[in-house]
Amino acid sequence: MDERFYSRLNQYRSLWVLVFFDLPTETRKERKIATSFRKKLLDDGFAMFQFSIYMRFCASRENAEVHVKRIRKNLPKKGKVGIMQITDRQFGLMEVFHGTKLAEKEQPVQQLELF
């Protein structure tokens, strides 16, 4: 089989994990908890897409599940958190706008994983 076949398969096998959250920040303690949650996402290899949306590329469903479990373990007691997994192919179809102009597509960050 040729290389294009494997490349196409990988677009459907690899996933992006997106974390959406709306956490209370009225008090100093709530701001500290929200900041801690964001920091844990960053420490786990997530990147900020928007202020309350973080994303991470995962090479496989199994790898994505590892990161989803970490998020579940660190969920704040208050607020709302959503986790969505989409294929690399679906992620590549996203259109992003800055104002009314279509933004240039950014190349995904190459991440090294140590086992």
Results as ranks from 00 to 15, higher is better:
59 A>I: 10
58 C>G: 08
88 D>S: 14
22 D>H: 01
103 A>I: 12
106 E>Q: 11
24 P>T: 03
42 L>T: 15
102 L>I: 14
15 L>W: 03
59 A>G: 13
101 K>M: 09
56 R>A: 11
3 E>C: 07
84 M>Y: 12
108 P>Q: 05
71 I>A: 05
57 F>D: 11
97 F>H: 11
80 K>S: 06
17 V>D: 05
46 F>C: 09
77 K>E: 12
97 F>A: 05
52 S>P: 04
31 R>C: 08
3 E>G: 07
96 V>L: 07
109 V>G: 05
43 D>L: 09
81 V>Y: 04
104 E>Q: 12
7 S>H: 13
58 C>S: 15
26 E>C: 00
32 K>D: 07
91 F>A: 15
24 P>V: 04
8 R>I: 12
26 E>I: 02
7 S>P: 01
61 R>C: 06
54 Y>R: 02
98 H>M: 08
43 D>E: 15
49 F>C: 02
12 Y>C: 02
6 Y>A: 13
10 N>E: 11
115 F>V: 09
67 H>L: 06
34 A>K: 00
82 G>N: 14
103 A>D: 11
42 L>K: 12
100 T>F: 10
75 L>G: 01
49 F>Y: 09
31 R>W: 01
88 D>F: 09
113 E>W: 07
87 T>C: 03
57 F>W: 15
111 Q>T: 13
107 Q>I: 10
12 Y>F: 10
115 F>I: 09
114 L>K: 02
38 R>W: 03
5 F>M: 10
11 Q>D: 08
46 F>D: 12
15 L>G: 00
79 G>S: 05
56 R>E: 09
90 Q>L: 11
15 L>A: 00
9 L>C: 09
39 K>A: 13
92 G>H: 00
28 R>Q: 07
74 N>I: 00
104 E>G: 14
3 E>Q: 14
38 R>H: 00
68 V>E: 05
89 R>N: 10
32 K>R: 10
47 A>L: 14
12 Y>I: 01
93 L>M: 02
4 R>E: 11
99 G>F: 12
67 H>F: 15
78 K>M: 02
82 G>T: 07
34 A>N: 03
70 R>G: 06
99 G>L: 07
53 I>N: 04
44 D>H: 08
45 G>L: 13
110 Q>Y: 10
91 F>K: 10
106 E>F: 10
114 L>G: 01
74 N>Y: 05
9 L>D: 06
102 L>Q: 15
4 R>N: 15
110 Q>E: 10
37 F>R: 05
83 I>V: 15
83 I>C: 13
25 T>K: 01
48 M>S: 10
14 S>L: 00
17 V>A: 04
68 V>D: 02
17 V>Y: 06
95 E>T: 01
30 E>I: 02
100 T>M: 12
42 L>V: 13
63 N>T: 08
110 Q>K: 13
65 E>P: 01
13 R>K: 13
21 F>L: 05
41 L>S: 03
19 V>P: 03
82 G>F: 10
95 E>P: 00
76 P>E: 06
66 V>T: 08
77 K>W: 04
111 Q>D: 03
31 R>T: 03
31 R>G: 01
72 R>W: 06
10 N>S: 11
